[in-house]
Every structure is written in C-alpha cells, then in structure tokens.
C-alpha cells in the first residue's frame, strides 16, 4: 500500500469506518511509515482536543420550556384532528336540535328576576326560613305570613327531596319559596297567586346558565329555577305540577 492510498483512507481508519481487511492493510503500512503514523497521531490529537472543549448541555430552563411547549403542541395537534370531525358533528346535531328541540324562550324580565332571586338565595345565607324535609312542617310555616296557601309536596321518592322553605320577594310581591335538592344542586320553586287564573303547560326559559320552568295551575303561578340540567329540571317541574294538582283536588 502506498502512502497516497493510505492518506485517502486515513480519516476512515481513525474513525474505524474501514472494513476489517482494509483496516489491517492500513495498520500494517502505518507501523512501518513514520509520515503516515504522524498523520494518524495528528488526527487523534485533534479528536482529543475537540472532546476536551466544553459540551453544550441543555439548560434546565430549556428542558422545562420544551416540555411545556411539547404538551401544548400535542394538545393542539389532537385538537386539530378532532376539530374536523367535531365540526361535522356539531352541524348535524345542531340542525337536528334546532328542528326538534323545544326552544327556550329568550329571557324576559320575570325570568331574570327569578334567576336573580335564586342566585341571591344561594349566595347569601338566606336560603331557609324553615328548614325541614317534612312537608307537614313546611306548609304550616307559611300560614299567617302570606295571604295564600302554597301547595307543598314531597318529591323525595322521585329523587327531589324537599329541604325547606322561606319567604322571598319577586315581581313586587311576597312569594313562597320552596327548596328542593338534587345531588349537589338546589332547586328553588317560587309560588304566588296567578294574575289570571288560566292553567298553562310548563314553559322553558333560560338566563345566564340557569334554567327556569314556569307554569300556572289552580290559580297559582310556579317558577322552578336551578342550574340543574334541562331534562332533570323538567322532570322535577312535571312531578311538582302533577303532585300539586293532586293535592289541590
């Protein structure tokens, strides 16, 4: 092997990238050639010096930033994948819902008042004037305090236990408020004499994330309000209307 041939393979030899046969041939030449031996030594010295230079390691700050960005990118990527599918779903379900769903009427002043009274009762400490799950305790409590007798029914068997009652003020008149529970949700039912006596079915309204059910029966107007989901509040209102009319008759 000539020095020129060896020189061509010098880097591959130093980097151990030559095949075994070729490496052996270069090795044999080097052991007898000072010039080529020197060139190999130079490259090994260079490697040593390069590896002695400080290694640039990632800072903790970068590691943290990268982890956070990665989590976000991952989330965005998944979001993008689902967005198309979700958009189609929303359009289909939305159109169906618009056609089939009984649309709640926009909030009117009275609905807003009902919701405000509900929120007030939850935020303040005045949720109960009488605290009892027994309708035979709650109903007599109203006697003499208001000029009407609100029907008080127990819906515990249907999953809406009575927890008490109080006087409240709604649309410039004093009303009876009954409090029912459903899981962690509070349902306020406001009752007052109806302005006109005609019975109505249950009407759905919403305001600020609260649902309201309103109906009139037997000369009494009812407003049930809660952050409970639509279906359950409707079930509660239906049960109330049914039981109250049974009690009244």
């Amino acid at each position: 092997m000539t020095c020129e041939e060896v020189e061509r393979d010098l880097d591959a030899f130093v980097d151990r990238e030559l095949e075994a046969g070729a490496a052996a041939a270069v090795g044999a030449h080097i052991s007898g050639c000072l010039g080529c031996r020197g060139r190999v030594d130079d490259r090994q010295t260079l490697s040593r010096l390069l590896q002695a230079a400080p290694y640039f390691a990632a800072s903790d700050r970068l590691r943290e930033r990268v982890t956070v960005r990665a989590a976000r990118a991952n989330w965005i990527g998944q979001l993008a994948r689902w967005t198309a599918a979700a958009a189609v779903l929303i359009i289909v379900v939305g159109s169906a819902a618009a056609l089939l769903w009984p649309r709640p009427r926009p909030a009117d002043d009275l609905t807003a008042d009902v919701v405000a009274a509900h929120v007030r009762s939850l935020m303040g400490e005045h949720l109960f004037d009488v605290r009892s799950s027994d309708r035979h305790t709650v109903k007599p409590w109203f006697l003499g305090k208001i000029d009407f007798a609100p029907p008080v029914v127990d819906l515990a068997a249907l999953g809406f236990p009575l927890s008490g009652g109080r006087l409240d003020y709604l649309a410039r008149r004093t009303v009876a408020a009954l409090v029912y529970q459903r899981g962690g949700h509070t349902i306020n039912v406001f009752i007052s004499p109806a302005d006109d006596g005609a019975d109505t079915g249950i009407q759905s309204r919403s305001d600020r994330g609260f649902h309201v059910r309103h109906w009139t029966h037997g000369g009494m107007a009812f407003w049930a309000v809660s952050d409970l989901n639509d279906a359950e509040l409707t079930a509660c209102a239906e049960a109330l209307a049914r039981e109250a009319s049974r009690q009244g008759s």
Partner: peptide, 19 residues
C-alpha cells in the same frame, strides 16, 4: 406523539440536540 413518548424519545437527547 403522546407526552409520555416525547419524554421517552426526545427528552433523553435534549443535551445532544442543544449541543
């Protein structure tokens, strides 16, 4: 790529990537 996979495949080579 899940977060776990990222931590298994990319994070171990972060120093090398930065260097």
């Amino acid at each position: 790529m899940s977060r776990q996979r990222f931590e298994e495949t990319v994070l171990p080579h972060l120093d090398a990537a930065f260097n």
